[in-house]
Each structure stands twice: as structure tokens, then as C-alpha cells.
């Protein structure tokens, strides 16, 4: 598959078409196509291709601090910077994970 990447825990990616940035919390081994706003996400340090544009069909917005998961929650990403594009893994949109209900302990 084109533009696939190994999603190592702790790795950071940014959108090629909007401000969205994510950090991988967990992901299964192997190569995956992680996209945002309809385009493959790129390494946090690289420069986006000039012709990449936000796909209106993938413009559902990604929110800072939210965690995004696939159906079986084998993939979990933390949004570290919000943006207009929505996240997808191998073509399937990711969903917001339910917030934790934890008492503050420190």
C-alpha cells in the first residue's frame, strides 16, 4: 500500500492538509495507512506535499486531547494538536474514545 507506515508507540505524525497532529498510544505491528483529511499523515518533522488539499469528505475535525480508536481499539492515537481533517486508518474513520472517569490522585 502506498504511504503506509509502522505505527510505533510514541511516534508522532502530522496531517498533510491541516493542523492536526497525533501521537501513537498503541498500534498492532505491521504497516498501516494513517490518514487525516483524506491524505496520508506524515512524520512530524517532514514537509507536506504542496498539492495536498483537505478532502471535504474527511473534514470532520480532530480535537486536541481526544483519543481516537478503531473498532476493536487495537489502535489508539492521542490528538496533540487539533485540526479540520478527520482521522482514518486503512480507509476506515477512527472514533473518539470515551473519556476516562478517574479521580484526580495527585
Amino acid at each position: 500500500m502506498l504511504n503506509t507506515a509502522v505505527l510505533k508507540a510514541g511516534a508522532r505524525f502530522k496531517s498533510a492538509v491541516c493542523d492536526t497532529q497525533v501521537m501513537v498510544i498503541k498500534a498492532p505491528a505491521g504497516e498501516h495507512l494513517l490518514s487525516c483529511g483524506g491524505s496520508a499523515m506524515i512524520a512530524a518533522s517532514s514537509t507536506p506535499p504542496a498539492d495536498a488539499k483537505l478532502d471535504p469528505n474527511a473534514a470532520g475535525e480532530t480535537l486536541i486531547g481526544k483519543r481516537y480508536v478503531n473498532a476493536d481499539e487495537s489502535v489508539e492515537l492521542l490528538c496533540t494538536k487539533g485540526g479540520k481533517g478527520s482521522l482514518a486508518l486503512n480507509g476506515t474513520p477512527l472514533e473518539v474514545k470515551q473519556a476516562k472517569q478517574l479521580p484526580s490522585s495527585d
Partner: peptide, 16 residues
């Protein structure tokens, strides 16, 4: 960094 980040992401909700 991975220990502390794991603690924070695992036990605190952002902007809670």
C-alpha cells in the same frame, strides 16, 4: 519520558 508520558496519558484526561 516514556514512563512519565505513559503515566499521564494512562491516568489523566486532557483538559479534565
Amino acid at each position: 519520558h516514556e514512563n512519565l508520558m505513559s503515566y499521564i496519558v494512562g491516568t489523566v484526561e486532557f483538559a479534565a
